[in-house]
Computed example of a mutant assay.
Amino acid sequence: MTKTITFNDLRKIKDRLPEGSMRKISEELNLNVETVRNYFGGTNYREGKSIGVHVEQGPNGGVVELDDTTILDCAYRILGEC
């Protein structure tokens, strides 16, 4: 399922996550932790991959289209547990 969100909103979600959440998500989904960080706007493509995140420049940091919301869904679940 695809989802469109502003880049700033995606970063706000990441910033609200408790410490260790990137690692928790990466372990749960069997992904490199840098890949999860890249999903939220990181740029370490030497260690991690880009997975289905497309950014179009514009207001509020631009628009991000997510091809797969699995990582975002994990983040929402973690925020619900806080």
Rank of each mutant, 00 (worst) to 15 (best):
residue 36 V to L: 05
residue 76 Y to Q: 12
residue 24 K to Q: 09
residue 80 G to V: 13
residue 9 D to W: 05
residue 50 S to T: 05
residue 74 C to D: 00
residue 31 L to V: 03
residue 62 G to L: 15
residue 47 E to V: 15
residue 23 R to M: 05
residue 67 D to C: 09
residue 52 G to V: 02
residue 16 R to N: 13
residue 72 L to G: 13
residue 28 E to N: 04
residue 25 I to W: 03
residue 58 G to A: 04
residue 39 Y to F: 13
residue 39 Y to P: 00
residue 43 T to L: 04
residue 67 D to S: 15
residue 21 S to G: 06
residue 73 D to A: 15
residue 14 K to N: 01
residue 17 L to Q: 09
residue 27 E to R: 14
residue 27 E to A: 06
residue 35 T to H: 03
residue 14 K to Q: 11
residue 19 E to N: 12
residue 41 G to V: 05
residue 61 G to N: 09
residue 16 R to S: 14
residue 21 S to V: 08
residue 12 K to W: 00
residue 8 N to S: 11
residue 7 F to L: 08
residue 9 D to M: 03
residue 17 L to I: 15
residue 20 G to K: 13
residue 34 E to F: 13
residue 16 R to K: 12
residue 72 L to N: 04
residue 46 R to Y: 10
residue 55 V to P: 01
residue 13 I to Q: 06
residue 9 D to T: 00
residue 77 R to I: 11
residue 9 D to H: 15
residue 15 D to S: 14
residue 22 M to A: 04
residue 49 K to L: 09
residue 3 K to E: 08
residue 13 I to V: 11
residue 74 C to S: 05
residue 49 K to I: 11
residue 12 K to T: 10
residue 3 K to S: 07
residue 6 T to W: 12
residue 1 M to N: 15
residue 30 N to C: 09
residue 12 K to Q: 10
residue 48 G to S: 03
residue 54 H to I: 11
residue 14 K to Y: 08
residue 11 R to G: 07
residue 17 L to V: 10
residue 58 G to K: 10
residue 7 F to G: 01
residue 81 E to M: 05
residue 48 G to P: 11
residue 69 T to F: 01
residue 70 T to Y: 01
residue 7 F to H: 03
residue 77 R to W: 07
residue 2 T to S: 11
residue 49 K to S: 05
residue 58 G to F: 13
residue 15 D to W: 00
residue 53 V to M: 11
residue 6 T to R: 10
residue 63 V to Y: 13
residue 26 S to L: 03
residue 19 E to K: 14
residue 77 R to T: 10
residue 56 E to Q: 08
residue 21 S to P: 02
residue 68 D to G: 00
residue 45 Y to L: 07
residue 25 I to M: 09
residue 71 I to D: 04
residue 48 G to M: 08
residue 52 G to E: 12
residue 16 R to Y: 11
residue 28 E to I: 02
residue 24 K to A: 14
residue 72 L to K: 07
residue 74 C to E: 06
residue 5 I to C: 10
residue 39 Y to E: 00
residue 35 T to G: 01
residue 61 G to F: 13
residue 59 P to Y: 09
residue 63 V to E: 07
residue 80 G to M: 02
residue 24 K to Y: 10
residue 72 L to I: 02
residue 3 K to H: 04
residue 29 L to P: 03
residue 49 K to N: 14
residue 11 R to S: 00
residue 35 T to A: 01
residue 39 Y to C: 02
residue 49 K to F: 03
residue 17 L to P: 06
residue 37 R to C: 11
residue 24 K to L: 09
